[in-house]
Design a protein around this nucleic acid. Structure first.
Lengths: 171, 171
DNA sequence: TGCGATTCTATCGCGTGCGATATACGCAGG
DNA sequence: CCTGCGTATATCGCACGCGATAGAATCGCA
């Protein structure tokens, strides 16, 4: 095996322009990777707090939305969580099996499934109230930095959401 | 349904302390959610560029590592990508089926599987060289902001990796 | 040398994510 | 009333992630 650090050796074989491009492919130059890694690490951090409640992290996100907006439609949850029915439908069925939510066809529009909180689901909010500060305490990350990071991410997300769908040009 | 924005109405029913905690559960107060969302949006952005090559985003990450470190062990890839064999083994088998890599048992230590690049896998680096700048161009995100965001994320990641495994206290 | 502990990879099970597609419902125009 | 179109949800298939566990190879130490 090798040590994790990249070496200078390959710079001797390739002309400068190719090398410059190749250097852009270094893992530690990518913005995408820390996003991918941080997201998974954070999910792992939530897990021990959510597991006693029988919840996964995406289910917790859905609950955050429901505590604000319930009752609401599946597509409303999808808009806020950036998830589609192919992910949400089975997830919501599992949450219904857990008895935290109810799924009922809307009377006024039979296409819509209304998601509402059960009593247990409503009460869960109290049991989860300490989770945010537990996590903030666990990672000793200063509130200012956290807010700045969140702002950067929100800006990035809005840019990403505003993109046209197709950019499959090169390759 | 409701509009996406939270309302002030619930603040009238609950005592201040409970309300303060409950407000911490608002989706737009979470740092975790923008991480989760941004990671998925970025993955979607890569997809049209990687799909012509038959690659998924995690496979691309593994290739980034291999272009720097190959040949190397599965666990070395796991350390850099923060993934375990339960994810990597099937992923690497698929990449072998694509003919981008080879998997061979190490001669010196039969426990180790050495991952090396095939000729096609090596050549792929050239075809991917323009991907980073394509994406930077697609999201019009200033280099300074991108660097600052990356630095924040790297700091967060190092804090998350340094955490003790167990914090399953409350709930 | 022998044998328990450790390391490395693989396997299993389950829950996402998501592209593609199907199905059911509502709606507008004829 | 019917028909075609758009919308809301569901289903399918596949590739992750990852906790738990298994199996084989190596290591450490008496």
């Amino acid at each position: 095996m090798k040590s994790g650090r990249p070496l200078r050796s390959e710079m001797k074989k390739t002309p400068p322009l190719v090398t410059a491009k190749a250097n852009n492919l270094r893992l530690d130059r990518q913005l995408c990777f820390p996003l991918y890694a941080a997201s998974r690490l954070i999910t792992r951090l939530y897990q021990p707090l959510l597991e006693p409640l029988g919840l996964t992290y995406p289910q917790y996100v859905v609950l955050l939305i429901l505590w604000e907006d319930a009752p609401c439609s599946v597509s409303h949850i999808g808009e806020r969580a950036l998830l589609n029915s192919n992910t949400l439908t089975p997830l919501l069925k599992r949450m219904e099996d857990l008895n935290y939510i109810r799924r009922t066809r809307s009377v006024t529009d039979e296409r819509v499934v209304e998601i509402s909180l059960s009593k247990a689901g409503t009460l869960l909010k109290g049991r989860c109230a300490c989770i945010p500060e537990s996590l903030n305490a666990a990672i000793s990350y200063s509130p200012e930095k956290a807010v700045a990071l969140k702002r950067s991410l929100d800006e990035l997300i809005s840019k990403l959401q505003a993109l046209p769908e197709t950019l499959a040009r090169n390759a």
